[in-house]
């Protein structure tokens, strides 16, 4: 792996992203608007918003990054540039980590906007510090990105890539504790829930919500999410083939 080529690759991907002004606008505004909508819906029950809004702050960037990344990498695959890159000194990890850096930066910008809106304007309240919430959300959106990188290997068209979302993202959203507390699900579903990385992001957020101090348990849960990011990134690199049929 070459650090130099990784950064050149990340720079190229960011430049592509910045050239598309409408996408930049959507990336920055959409999660903040969704949070605002949820806040308006739950206007009468601010404590419910404190739970649901907090989870959505992580869940929406997770979902968006999954979509954006899987489609962008798919375009690289179908547009012939991936094959070309595989004949250059670019390594598989250079490319995948380049994507992770570029979209990680986009995820950080997106989450910062959404979290600022939620905490400053919508009155989102947690016992713990907001910067930890932000950190959890950024790592969670990187999870979405890493899963998107991995999953894009199994799609041959953008149409298929979009349809992987109900497969890889929606069950995680349903089982992570967003719509129903995990400890009230059937035993086997709790087992499934425990096996999904997004669940640990929600557990980490719950720690911040309840405890004024940053707890060890929070760091443990966050480490699980980050570990899943690394695993998905390496798996994503492993799906790239220099030789194809």
């Amino acid at each position: 792996m070459s650090v130099r080529i990784t950064f050149i690759t990340a720079g190229r991907i960011l430049r592509q992203l910045l050239n598309d002004r409408r996408t930049v606008g959507l990336i920055l505004a959409v999660p903040a608007l969704i949070i605002a909508l949820i806040s308006a819906i739950m206007d009468d029950s601010p404590q419910v918003f404190d739970t649901v809004g907090l989870i959505l702050l992580a869940a929406f960037p997770f979902m968006l990054m999954f979509m954006i990344t899987s489609i962008t990498l798919l375009r690289e695959r179908t547009g012939g540039t991936l094959e070309r890159l595989m004949t250059t000194p670019t390594g598989k990890l250079d490319l995948v980590v380049g994507y992770a850096l570029a979209f990680g930066a986009a995820a950080a910008a997106q989450t910062t906007v959404a979290a600022t809106v939620a905490f400053v304007f919508l009155g989102l309240d947690t016992a713990g510090p907001a910067w930890v919430v932000l950190l959890i959300c950024i790592v969670t959106s990187m999870l979405g990105m890493a899963l998107g990188l991995f999953v894009s290997a199994f799609a041959t068209t953008e149409f298929q890539a979009i349809q992987f979302m109900p497969v890889f993202v929606i069950p995680q959203l349903f089982l992570c504790g967003l719509i129903w507390p995990a400890d009230q699900m059937a035993g086997w579903l709790q087992g499934v829930s425990d096996a999904l990385p997004l669940t640990y992001a929600v557990k980490a957020l719950t720690e911040v919500q309840l405890n004024p101090e940053v707890t060890d348990a929070m760091w443990g849960y966050l480490a699980v999410v980050f570990g899943a990011v690394l695993v998905a990134t390496v798996l994503g690199a492993a799906t790239l083939r220099r030789r194809t049929n």
């Binding site: 080529i5 050149i8 190229r12 430049r15 592509q16 050239n19 598309d20 547009g79 012939g80 540039t81 094959e83 070309r84 004949t87 250059t88 000194p89 670019t90």
Partner: peptide, 30 residues
């Protein structure tokens, strides 16, 4: 990979980058 260059049949370039940025990217890799 530093000594062989390949130009595919369908132009393998990034549609959302300028001509200059495309060439500068491949240049930078080398």
């Amino acid at each position: 990979r530093r000594r062989v260059a390949y130009v595919t049949q369908d132009a393998s370039i990034y549609r959302d980058l300028s001509v200059k940025a495309n060439v500068a990217y491949f240049a930078a890799l080398y």
